[in-house]
Amino acid sequence: MTVLEAIRTPAAVDRAGASAPAKIEVANVTLRYTRKQDQSESTALDNVSLRVGTGEFLAIVGPSGCGKSTLLKVINGLLRPSEGSVRIDGKPVENVPDGVGFVFQSDGLLPWRTAEENVAIGATLAGRSATDARQRALELLTELGVQRAIGKHPHELSGGMRKRVALARTIAYEPKLYLLDEPFSALDAQTRIHVGNRFIKTLEEIGQTVIIVTHDLEEAIALADRVIVMSAAPGRIAAEFKIDLPRPRDYYQSRFHPDFRRQQQQLWDVLQREMAGELNS
């Protein structure tokens, strides 16, 4: 996979997890917003602190509406926290920082552009010339196994193909940090395995820091080096768990690894204790 190896970083060689130098530091972030309908104030994130190592693959799990997507947007600088701060590579995030790629829950592809034009936009924004960007788009689509998408508009593609085109666009932007917001939630079970595998293989290959948000605990364990569980609204970090399954991983097969069940059981124990504590307080 020559195309992807080109953007591989030394940090990727050792996925050292939290012990590596910090890529992201989220310190005491609280985000409150005023609801449009009744002007009442809601808290989306409540005093969230979090540290992500360079090259780490972190999964954030939580029930819907717990603010996990909001947290990603805060890290990307798309939303400004009411309190607290976010630092990427030690620099405080004020506006949108460079080198952060976001894969949205809806694929976010422009319906009026073909697959390769959509991907080329990412490459253009990474500073490539128009012809270079187009070339790059074709390479990436081939690399991700969606050559068939070339020349087609998003409405002509299946959900799984659109996801891969969206990932290609993000890769084309050459980020040093990938933020994935429930990238597989809209896919059916079979497509999810197929696309999930493409994603994990590609992201392992690129070796950059990744944060994936999901509501699927098994998916989180299968993919990540570390899983953070968030509580229901207001979003707080309820539990944190290190996963030491061997890499390279497989989106589906990893779940049959003997350590998987053990880790899932341990995580579940932590969660139950956490939930019990919540009910008593």
């Binding site: 947007k73 990307n76 798309l78 949108v96 460079d98 952060v100 790629g101 976001f102 949205f104 829950q105 809806s106 976010g108 422009l110 936009i121 990412g122 924004l125 932007y173 933020l179």
Partner: peptide, 13 residues
């Protein structure tokens, strides 16, 4: 579509 704007903003367009 909010996501289109966010996608472009996130890439510093």
């Amino acid at each position: 579509d909010r996501d289109h704007i966010d996608a472009f903003r996130s890439m510093n367009a």
